[in-house]
Amino acid sequence: MKPPAFSYYRPESVAQALHLLSTVEGAKILAGGQSLIPMMNMRLARPDALVDINHLTELTSIQDVGDALEIGALVRHDELLRSPLVRRHAPLVAQAERLIGHPAIRSRGTIGGSLAHADPAAELPVLAVLGDWELIVSSQTQTRTISAGDFFLSYFVTTLAPEEMLLRIRLPKVSTYGHIAEYAIQAGDFALTIAATSVDVGPSGVVRECRIALGGVTDVPWRDKTIERQAIGQVAQDSLWKDISHTVAEAIDPIDDLHATSAYRRQLAEALLREALHRAAQPKPA
């Protein structure tokens, strides 16, 4: 469990980092190292070079930019858990952070690393898809903004090119309520299935908006806007959540692995989703 030899670069600016990424053969970004380093130790990843971005203070802020929060790619899980701005404008992120790993992992791991790593059972990618986050990505030659729905391609695969770096993530502020429910075999483990929701119920008790995303069931975070729309205009009540959860469970084709069969994941998705919808629709104290 020792990594193969690699060269190591420690840029002091984003510009330098992007330069390295476009010039150094086989370079990979090192952020919190919580996914990359174990993979290197197991020799499942063998980058020729690491570009350590931990010194790029340009990427460490959480900013209120009006209708959104802009979060630097290097912001650690732990900070997302504590930040008053996040709690206020993206409360679901703060809620989800409690489910990610253990304190030691959260104090190193980053939002950028979590999204770029694209583990299908990770929480933040699910929230990114649910919340229509925008990912601001740069290479030495261009900057582009990718919506989360287009970012994840497959297991551990995103649209990021090798010379690109995720700089910031724009999270539209939410006024709706949300909930994340998951089941992991042990606290701190990656979940078998994750259900995240956000629901807006009008004064008359009718659903105005409903979003649903699942993690751990397919190779990328799962979302289906057609099903979401079926909820709109309906009375927010348990029978609705039951129907929607059931519809979703019928619509998905969950993965099968060592720990859970497809049928088990389907049931988990249905149960967790129903809980997450029910909780999201609960009237909250102001």
Partner: peptide, 17 residues
């Protein structure tokens, strides 16, 4: 009796796990 196995036992699913 892992969660996956319990699911299978409850649903009389063919033992696979």
């Amino acid at each position: 009796i892992t969660p996956g196995r319990l699911f299978q036992a409850m649903h009389r699913e063919e033992a696979k796990l």
